[in-house]
């Protein structure tokens, strides 16, 4: 039973991480109606710059703003340089241009920082473990990720639900033309929203650095998972992204932990050894297909387009 609780915690941490990626993606998607495959590159840029700064200065307090700033700057540059030309285009152009950006960035980091994976370490003050559940000390760093992630989620909720800018964003998500007609500066709004998304992706990337590998292409796999999240949650909905991210985190974690023993109950052991992990790796895609089959617009589509 305790183990189940531990796994729930693991799922929460994974889900929070996914949420940070998905939040920016779903905003950009919902408001500008742009498919952004380069979102994973912003995650990668945040991770690289943070790790490199940390190695150079030994100061995590310097490394965090450096990583965030780099992701933000990269985001603003590609928004102004490339995305502005893509807003009026169809999804195909967007998919291809951002696919091209991903290819470019994956090699660019290798040109700048070399092919070797970068060593990023957990800062000293978060290096140990915290005992929350008896017998299963949890890494302090991951706990910090959960806290930061939940705080960011709350902050985003406040911004969007309570502030004037949030109102404009909401207006933009449900009816772009109307928001513009009512006097919102759409050009600035788009840049701000994109920058916000870049910032969140950079934050996810720099937090991921010390526990995953900082390497070329690190953003690709999490990007696909983030897409799964926003599609399940309903494109453009922060609330949907939050719930779906946690759900995907839980489902994936539980699948990995318990599918193999579950299959072992009714399959011979070698068959279960093969089928367990196979189904576990497909599980969230199966869930996504099922959700879309019954609710093509996702679980929490933003009201009215």
């Amino acid at each position: 039973m305790l183990l189940l609780l531990v796994q729930a915690f693991n799922g929460l941490q994974f889900g929070v991480m996914l949420f940070l990626m998905a939040a920016g993606l779903t905003l950009v998607f919902g408001i500008m109606n742009v498919v952004n495959l380069a979102h994973g590159s912003l995650y990668m840029v945040g991770a690289y710059v943070c790790a490199e700064t940390y190695v150079a200065t030994h100061s995590f307090l310097l490394a965090i703003p450096a990583g965030l700033l780099a992701a933000l700057a990269t985001g603003v540059i590609i928004e102004i340089g490339i995305f502005r030309a893509l807003y009026t285009r169809d999804h195909l152009d967007q998919v291809l241009a951002t696919f091209g950006l991903t290819l470019m960035f994956n090699d660019l980091v290798r040109i700048i920082w070399g092919s070797d994976a970068i060593y990023a370490t957990v800062p000293k003050f978060l290096a140990g473990q915290v005992v929350i559940i008896p017998g299963a000390p949890y890494p302090a760093y991951r706990l910090a990720i959960i806290v930061v992630g939940l705080a960011v989620a709350a902050l985003l909720y406040l911004i969007i639900a309570r502030t004037r800018y949030g109102m404009i964003i909401r207006a933009g998500a449900s009816n772009r033309v109307m928001a513009g007609a009512l006097g919102a500066n759409i050009v600035v709004l788009y840049t701000v929203v994109f920058a916000l998304g870049a910032l969140l992706a950079g934050l996810a990337g720099l937090m991921a650095g010390p526990i995953f590998t900082v390497a070329s292409g690190m953003g690709d796999s999490i990007l696909i998972l983030a897409f799964v999240v926003i599609v399940i949650g309903g494109i453009g909905s922060i609330r949907g992204a939050f719930i779906a991210a946690l759900a995907v985190g839980f489902i994936d974690t539980m699948g990995r932990a318990y599918l193999r023993p579950l299959f072992g109950l009714f399959l011979p052991s070698t068959a279960a050894d093969n089928a367990g992990p196979a189904v576990a790796s497909m599980l969230i895609y199966i869930v996504m297909a099922a959700v879309l089959f019954f609710r093509p617009q996702g679980l929490f589509p933003p009201r009215m387009r």
């Binding site: 183990l3 693991n10 799922g11 994974f14 590998t213 932990a257």
Partner: peptide, 21 residues
Amino acid sequence: GEVYTTFGQHDYQAEISQIRA
């Protein structure tokens, strides 16, 4: 215990928790 994980997986906290148990 004998566990096979997804090829290319990058987070092992679920499996590591199982090991500890």
